[in-house]
Design a binder for these strands. Sequence first.
DNA 1: GTTCATTCCGACCGCGTTGGTAGGATAAGA
DNA 2: TCTTATCCTACCAACGCGGTCGGAATGAAC
Lengths: 164, 164
Amino acid sequence: MIFTTKAEYGVRLLVELGRQGSENPVSLKAIAEAEGLPLAYLERIVALLKKFGLVESQRGAHGGYSLARPAGEITMDEAVLALEGVVAPMSCFVDDSVDRKGVLCSHDHDAGHGCATKLLWTRVQGGMVEAMRRTTLAELIQFSSRQTSRQTSRQTSPLVTING
Amino acid sequence: MIFTTKAEYGVRLLVELGRQGSENPVSLKAIAEAEGLPLAYLERIVALLKKFGLVESQRGAHGGYSLARPAGEITMDEAVLALEGVVAPMSCFVDDSVDRKGVLCSHDHDAGHGCATKLLWTRVQGGMVEAMRRTTLAELIQFSSRQTSRQTSRQTSPLVTING
DNA sequence: GTTCATTCCGACCGCGTTGGTAGGATAAGA
DNA sequence: TCTTATCCTACCAACGCGGTCGGAATGAAC
């Protein structure tokens, strides 16, 4: 499994928050009951989202959480980054779009030829990040509302079956 | 981290195998020493590749492993599938390109609206699988050979930095 | 100003997976 | 028959995950 339940629960939490509108903050208890998730665990998860500035909190009675921005301006790469930390295919993987020293890798001992897997992990990460960046929270809210009705015709990516 | 060292070691093993040409089989010991990887662990990893039909083995003295197919015909989605098993973003994620029942998800209890994260995970998996399918073993071999020379100009995907 | 609902915070903990190791059985060339 | 290699199973420590617990701080309501 790629992501942990932090990403799953956290995104669902965001969706639930966005679904409520932006009137008054929603308590975690309400969300936990609506989604059937453990409250104490959700507390720790929402802290990640707050630290990253995706949600705002109101303490005390009638307090709760609300989106810090409109759902259309929250992309999933932000959310997942906040929830899971840096998403990298491999522990040795360092994105060298910043520091261009060629191949930064713990396996550089095999002198002569560089890290053989670098190209692969770069592409994989690129594909994932691109998919997350073009998905907004607003889309997820809309998607989860019109479920079970008609089939979503606009399939953005060809969806190759891997587990079949 | 998305993948475990199985994928890392396994792909490096394949690259090393492809680099040797297809004359006679290469022993794991040679690969382990070349890549600085634990031999006993490599044995278990190569077993996965063999079970999936990506490598062939020759037992006994002067035995070893060799690619079952030309490197250009081995795509990385096969390799990763053999090494890591089914790659899914989330444990509840089921690819419904086969069985179209709408949203198959363990979180279907929230009646009315479907699984909110389904769209996201579908896109993420699609992006990953696509990236792996278009990457052949031959590419990795070629890539790892011309390392440290000039910069690879043809960057297939825009590679957005996420950990910056 | 007490009460209650809520966010906030840190410690704890069982469990499964990961990344190895150990030891041997089997096969085949010299 | 010795050596080199694949094969196979069991074992193990360390770590992360998913979750709980207990208790602060905070603020609205009465």
